[in-house]
């Protein structure tokens, strides 16, 4: 029994790292552009497909394919930002939050359907990073692909934290999230930061999609569930806090998997997994509306 719980916790950690990649992207976009990106799950999905086709059509090995997929998702996201979000920065648009919701929600439906047309409705599975499984905890197995996904994801998160805290571009992003006015006073062009934020956020989601593809396969609707979970995590982590988001993602991933594992009827567990996350979110919103790690209120403007 203990072995089973441990392996479920390990699986939860893998999922938690994937959640963290998706949710940190969402939170970066939220804190810089001040919009909720409802198409974030679809960008994660696109990243998975980019990785798949980079491997199958271009013959790139699986590991570098993750980086190539991230680069493509980065450019793809910037294209979306330039094409659809620039009206947000114009003083002529008054209800910016509403515009952001409508345009990203529409984009999410569009991308999901265009994926069905382009990639087909059936699940696709790229080749494994490393075939086989590691035997742990007396007979229970954990696949190498899961270890690669968790390890790769953690590396990306460390790189992200380094970028945000140690590079002048990361600090400039942080500055814009704190005050657009002050940022422009020191000469930072906020529009370039919006591009960068949307690109980096998209690349993180795309990386998650490419890392998780060999485990769960790709499908046009794969972004729906992680997207919901990412909203839960971003709220838990306190809107706009990257470290809070990472901690909340790991906690949710692990606790959700343990919840599934400990449910009396484990076969029903997975169906309750989403409900569990949303239940936690309701509790947090009731008792700590700024999130567990929220540092300050964020105004939508």
């Amino acid at each position: 029994m203990l072995d089973y719980i441990l392996i479920q916790a390990a699986n939860g950690l893998v999922i938690g790292v994937m959640f963290a990649l998706i949710a940190t992207g969402l939170t970066i976009i939220f804190s810089i552009l001040k919009i909720v990106n409802f198409a974030h799950g679809e960008i994660y999905m696109m990243g998975g497909y980019f990785g798949y086709y980079v491997i199958t059509l271009l013959g790139v090995p699986p590991f570098p394919a993750v980086l190539v997929a991230m680069a493509i998702t980065f450019l793809f996201s910037i294209g979306l930002e330039r094409g659809l979000l620039t009206p947000l920065y114009s003083p002529r648009i008054e209800r910016k939050a509403d515009y952001g919701i409508l345009i990203t929600f529409g984009l999410s439906v569009f991308l999901r359907n265009i994926a069905i047309i382009l990639f087909g409705p059936f699940p696709l599975r790229p080749p494994s990073f490393i075939e086989g499984s590691l035997a742990v905890f007396g007979g229970l197995m954990i696949s190498y692909d899961r270890l690669v996904a968790a390890g790769g994801g953690l590396l990306l998160l460390v790189a992200l934290i380094w970028f945000l805290n140690r590079t002048v571009w990361g600090q400039a992003l942080n500055a814009v999230s704190q005050s657009r006015e002050s940022a422009s006073i020191v000469g930072i062009n906020s529009e370039r930061m919006y591009m960068l934020a949307f690109g980096v956020g998209g690349a993180l989601a795309g990386g998650a999609g490419a890392l998780i593809a060999p485990i769960y396969s790709l499908s046009p609707s794969m972004g729906l569930v992680p997207d919901t979970q990412a909203f839960v995590i971003v709220i838990l982590g306190g809107l706009g806090s990257v470290s809070g988001t990472i901690i909340a993602a790991l906690l949710l991933g692990i606790s959700q998997n343990l919840f599934i594992a400990l449910l009396p009827d484990p076969s029903r567990g997975p169906s309750y997994a989403n409900a569990f996350g949303l239940f936690i979110m309701m509790l947090v919103l009731l008792f700590r509306p700024t999130g567990i790690f929220g540092r300050h209120a964020v105004a939508m403007d």
Partner: peptide, 25 residues
């Protein structure tokens, strides 16, 4: 240069990073 009524500093960044950002250009 413009110094608005409320100091245009970045409250959640360190003093050193605030100065580094002043050298953005």
């Amino acid at each position: 240069a413009y110094l608005p009524q409320r100091p245009s500093i970045f409250p959640f960044l360190s003093v050193e990073v605030n100065l580094r950002l002043g050298a953005w250009s």
